[in-house]
């Protein structure tokens, strides 16, 4: 790596970004902190309550359940999408007419507004008018995502796999394309097996993009809101009420500013911790691989 020139004037180039993001990130965050220690009865009249909201929230089952659901959802999503994405990327054609066809059709779900993704699956899964629901019903499988929590979870997970696996595929594919042909030829001469090619050539090259994929997929699934909101509205019961859905219910539905703000802060701190861990791991791996390469 080339040492970068030290230049404090670079701050002037960063200034516009800094100002815009500061206004839209720091002011709301300060407001959330302010709300989290007060109670309000409307009319902008606030009363100091100290840490009560945090204490209530941390002791409440509603928060524990939403948090657990969120963690398990993200874990399931990662466990399915990452291996699946790698497998599809490995099987994708490297040249010819298949490449643009694959890329364009795979990128398509990523460009669909999230609520339309919800609508698509809401329709697709319905027993009366949806292909999936109808087919399952015809096969004699009892499937109704508005009544049965298990079916609701499966629907949302399949929906998310449908929606986001392409991101993992495209990232891995970009990593694979950057491997020079010479590597494969060398492996062929050495008589390397399929598995050792994957283990020693393809996986190391994909490491960086895979980390980005894990980071993006984890974070986005951790704040999922729109799709489950459209498909199930958090139901049946509370079985698909993830953190964001719960938070929006509290903040905008019930206008409970205090508890919602306290929950926002804890949510935000968890995200901050996780993204810091990912970021540290990512930059360390980046340094190691660039040192090892030179």
């Amino acid at each position: 790596m080339i040492a970068k020139q030290v230049n404090q004037k670079a701050w002037f180039m960063v200034l516009p970004v800094f100002l815009v993001v500061a206004v839209s990130a720091i002011i709301p965050l300060m407001t959330v902190v302010n709300y989290s220690v007060q109670d309000t009865f409307g009319n902008n009249q606030f009363f100091w309550v100290g840490m009560d909201w945090f204490r209530d929230l941390l002791a409440s089952d509603r928060f524990h359940d939403a948090f657990l659901r969120q963690i398990s959802f993200s874990a399931i999503i990662l466990a399915i999408e990452i291996p699946l994405g790698i497998a599809i990327a490995l099987a994708m054609p490297k040249k010819g007419w298949g490449v643009p066809v694959c890329l364009i059709s795979m990128a398509l779900p990523l460009l669909i507004p999230w609520n339309v993704v919800g609508t698509i699956w809401q329709i697709f899964g319905r027993v009366d008018i949806g292909l999936l629901g109808h087919t399952l019903a015809a096969m004699g499988i009892d499937y109704n995502y508005t009544q049965d929590p298990v079916a609701a979870w499966i629907t949302i997970i399949i929906m998310d796999v449908w929606h986001w696996t392409s991101l993992v595929v495209l990232l891995c594919y970009a990593g694979l394309c950057s491997i020079p042909d010479a590597y494969y030829q060398a492996a062929k001469i050495d008589g390397a097996s399929r598995i050792s090619v994957f283990r020693y050539i393809q996986l190391p090259k994909m490491q960086r993009v895979l980390l980005i994929a894990v980071l993006l997929r984890f974070m986005d699934s951790f704040m999922i809101y729109t799709e489950p909101f459209v498909i199930t509205g958090g139901g049946p019961g509370n079985s698909t009420t993830f953190m964001s859905i719960d938070l929006v219910k509290m903040a905008i539905g019930q206008f409970d500013l205090g508890p919602a703000a306290a929950m926002s802060l804890i949510y935000f701190l968890v995200i901050l911790l996780l993204s810091w861990v990912f970021f540290t791991v990512m930059s360390n791996i980046g340094e190691e691989s660039s040192n090892g390469g030179s």
């Binding site: 002011i27 300060m30 407001t31 902190v33 302010n34 709300y35 220690v37 007060q38 309000t40 902008n44 606030f46 100091w48």
Partner: peptide
């Protein structure tokens, strides 16, 4: 700025 609901403790914190 009344909507931001500043209090002395939070202001001190920031």
């Amino acid at each position: 700025l009344s909507w931001m609901a500043w209090t002395k403790p939070t202001a001190t914190f920031f």
